[in-house]
Nucleic acid binder design. Structure first.
Lengths: 133, 133
DNA sequence: CATATTCCTAGTAAAGTAGTAGGAATAATA
DNA sequence: TATTATTCCTACTACTTTACTAGGAATATG
């Protein structure tokens, strides 16, 4: 279970926004400084979060971002999925296994992989940004 | 949670050996054909398993591999660790988080990551090759 | 001596990762 | 109106990892 920097930075940014006064918008610069994230990189990440409808943006001076959903409506799982692709579907837990093995024979191994996936998903689906704030 | 092909192939090879008659040794060629693994790649993997003391080998004609431990003494976790490095220590779950973030502030996020790690570890540590066979 | 095997090292092509660079669009402000 | 602060968007790049392949030395068996 390894997260990419993208999804970690995304979570950190969302958490920061959730903690901020939702009245005004917050710039990438501000978030980047607070959470210690490379600003230009965070710019990309915020853009993706915007496209994913997790944040709202306003351009221009005094512009920036704010959450587009209530923090308790954003699970860690969906954010991680947005950046790292599928969270842990069986195919991702076990890509080569699926592609190359006569599965009938090794379905016990498969069962364990699925169990892992389910446990990870369970935790990340049920934990929200609000829980972290 | 994504396994590399190496650790999946290693597990498949060990499972195959565990199911085989332990009296004689089994060649890479045989395992590779049975489990549909690129033979030269499997060669490397078997070598690593040998260095990790999971299998025993005999060179030359009629040579090959056999398990060096009882199948119920080999957990999936240790095999995966051998190939994919740390299974899911907190640092790996959350590399950038650790390196770049004032952790004090985001220790709730950290707690979730740890919870995921622990769950994954729990399953993989307690499941052995014997359970899969 | 031929053959079947493990042992070991090096190389390689493709993909993924973590960024950087730079400029267009837009909104507030001086 | 000009400047400035911001988002928006695309392209690029350096690095690492991944999944192999190649080839030959060592060694045991027939």
């Amino acid at each position: 279970m390894k997260l990419t920097s993208r999804s970690e930075y995304a979570l950190l940014a969302l958490v920061f926004l959730a903690r901020s006064d939702s009245a005004h918008h917050i710039s990438v610069e501000t978030i980047a400084r607070a959470q210690n994230i490379p600003p230009k990189f965070l710019e990309q990440i915020m853009l993706a979060l915007k496209h994913g409808k997790y944040v709202h943006s306003v351009k221009g001076q005094r512009g920036g971002y704010r959450l587009a959903k209530a923090p308790d409506k954003i699970s860690l799982a969906e954010v991680i999925r947005l950046f790292d692709g599928a969270l842990a579907p069986t195919e991702s837990v076990s890509k080569y296994f699926y592609e190359t093995t006569p599965i009938e024979k090794e379905k016990n191994l498969l069962r364990v992989f699925r169990q892992v996936r389910d446990q990870v998903a369970e935790i990340l689906e049920t934990t929200t940004i609000a829980d972290v704030v």
